[in-house]
Amino acid sequence: MGSSRQKGCTVLDLAFSVRDLARTRFALSPLWEVVASIRVLKHPAEHPLYRRWSDEAGRRLAASGLDWGLLADLVPQPPLAIPVFIAPPPTTSVADLGLELAVLRSTPAEQVRSGLGGRRAPRSERIERLRSDPFRGLAELADTVAAYWEIALAPYWPRVRSLLEGDVLHRARVFAESGAQALLNDLGTNVTWDDDTLYVGHHYARGRRALGGRGLLLVPSAFVWPRVFSVTSPAWQPTLRYPPRGVATLWERRTELPQNLASVIGRSRAHLLAELDTPASTTDLARRTGITAGGVSQHLTALRAAGLVDAHRSGRYVLYVRTEAAEVLLAAAHAQRDEVNVPPSG
Rank of each mutant, 00 (worst) to 15 (best):
R304V: 08
D143S: 12
V247A: 04
E100K: 02
L272A: 06
S297G: 12
W68M: 04
P279R: 06
S314P: 08
R129K: 13
E165Y: 02
G98M: 01
V318Y: 09
S162T: 15
A325I: 00
P89C: 04
R253Q: 13
A87E: 01
L257W: 00
L240E: 09
P30H: 07
L183A: 08
A335Y: 07
S17T: 15
D167W: 00
R131S: 14
L14H: 03
G8Q: 05
G137H: 05
T323F: 12
R25T: 14
N185R: 13
S64V: 05
W32H: 13
Q111A: 08
L97Q: 02
L276F: 05
F16I: 07
H312N: 09
P220L: 04
P89G: 03
L300V: 01
S29M: 09
G207V: 04
D20T: 01
S3H: 14
A325V: 02
S124D: 10
L28W: 02
P234R: 00
D310F: 00
H47S: 12
H170G: 01
A147C: 07
E165R: 07
I151W: 02
T239K: 05
A172T: 13
L285R: 05
D310Q: 11
N341S: 15
Y50I: 14
E275S: 11
E252S: 10
R136P: 00
H299S: 15
V40D: 01
R214L: 09
R51I: 13
A305P: 03
T301K: 15
A205K: 07
L163S: 11
A45I: 07
D143E: 15
Q336C: 09
L49G: 04
G207R: 02
P30Q: 02
S106F: 00
T323L: 13
A182T: 11
A102C: 06
G315S: 10
K7D: 08
R208S: 14
Y156S: 10
P158K: 15
L70I: 04
Q111H: 04
L211Q: 08
G137E: 05
S132Q: 15
R267H: 07
A235T: 09
G213V: 04
S345T: 14
A248F: 01
E165L: 09
R304A: 15
L104N: 03
A139I: 03
P78V: 08
T144P: 11
S345E: 14
S263D: 13
E177P: 13
E125V: 11
G207F: 06
E125N: 06
T192F: 09
I86P: 03
A180N: 09
